[in-house]
Design a protein around this nucleic acid. Structure first.
Lengths: 232, 232
DNA sequence: CTGAATATATATCAAATGATATCTTTTGAT
DNA sequence: ATCAAAAGATATCATTTGATATATATTCAG
């Protein structure tokens, strides 16, 4: 009976943290693989991305992916967790503040200002960053496909983000709790940002912009801010 | 020298219309393949969709795809053309009217009403229809990936649609020609609809809706209409 | 009814791809 | 310096997949 031997050290698939030891060089290789995988998965999706391409981009050989992440799906899940972590790094302070403020029963005007800050930061992340749009592609694709990483991304990113947005919109409209209209509004507002993340090349082409310079980004943000000003 | 023989009849790849004759039953098979292909490509994308799955869904054998469309890419392009045609069928009258009205220098109020009609119809198409969201997935994916069908879809669907929306917004704001702000606004408005097309299952899940009933759709449309009312 | 045009079916091919068995090299604590 | 753990490299499998050569069946105009 050829029963499966336990892998020699790093990961089996449902890993959470490195178990025993681990050399520095190994951790670097692991990081390179994760980076390359986020790019490939983000650009092409789970099925269309190939492990060979990821291995090549990461400068490792093919079995290294299995060694560090167990399987293609294990690697995909690890990417999802990494993306959640990176969004949190960039948004957590702002989001925590806004959440606390909501709890403290802020004024509609204050809510509007915080909504601008949150959406503005998110917009900047999506529009300007050359790496965040890869995360966004990853997340949006998973929201549409509902693949292996759906639960992680929905529960830890999408739902909390939309809920916060809905609560801020609700407060800005003078409501006490988020109405269906406020929640619909939140979905529409966040989804509208895809125009400049997933579909950024097309948007730039349509606008005749060679790239997303600071000045140009400012004009996008101005339009979004105006929309927020008109809420309520 | 095994030079490529011309296919026995239907398509070589860059087909436009059936050349000579063609039996009725053949045309039915062709239609089934196209239908199945739009579903597969829309749901999975070019690379991830498999010709075998498409053939099975269409109740034909594998070589039939080559026989009718030349290759996987030929089939993909045929889907793009078909989707352009179907959108036109459902939107053309409205779009033509709005275009003519713009040319006739309508009032901001009229422009706003027409904008509501166009976006409302589009929203209804995306939200309610179980087939139009497949076309939308197809189109949006191509806008992001810029694959073989990009030129067709951009030039014949996306750009004209966004341009019309931008012009109506511009007119509603009292402008004489579409400003950058109006065009950005148009991009955001159209992109926001993805919340209820590509990402519809997630939106329903978040809202706690088991499905998109007429009543529920009406509340989505109301929020969108309010946003249009606040333009300018 | 007949036959050329049209359409369908069978059987493979070659390349791409995820996975993995096996061997060698490197690392770093002792 | 030694050695077990960790990491990397090579070679190869089994599937999947797009493509197609070839044979058979069907359609419908005359």
């Amino acid at each position: 009976m050829p029963s499966a031997e336990a892998p020699r050290s790093p990961k089996g698939a449902g890993d959470i943290a490195a178990a025993p030891g681990g050399y520095r060089k190994g951790e670097e290789a692991r990081a390179r693989i994760l980076e390359a995988a986020m790019r490939s998965f983000g650009a092409s999706g789970f099925k269309a991305a190939t492990t060979r391409q990821i291995a090549e981009d990461a400068n490792v050989n093919l079995p290294a992916l299995k060694y560090y992440f167990g399987s293609k799906e294990g690697l995909y899940l690890a990417c999802a967790r990494e993306i959640v972590g990176r969004y949190e790094t960039r948004m957590l302070a702002l989001v925590t503040d806004a959440g606390a403020a909501l709890h403290a029963d802020i004024s509609p005007t204050d809510a509007r200002a915080r909504l601008k800050a949150v959406i503005g930061t998110l917009a900047e992340l999506l529009v300007s960053s050359t790496e965040a749009d890869i995360w966004t592609s990853f997340v949006l694709r998973e929201m549409a496909d509902q693949g292996p990483a759906f639960a992680i991304l929905y529960e830890q990113l999408w739902a909390p983000g939309v809920a916060l947005t809905a609560n801020l919109i609700s407060r800005a409209m003078g409501e006490r709790a988020a109405s269906p209209a406020a929640r619909i509004h939140a979905l529409l507002l966040i989804s509208s940002l895809t125009a400049f993340s997933t579909a950024r090349p097309v948007a730039l082409k349509y606008l005749g912009w060679p790239d997303a310079s600071d000045t140009r980004f400012a004009s996008v943000r101005r339009v979004i801010d105006e929309q927020i000003d008109r809420i309520g």
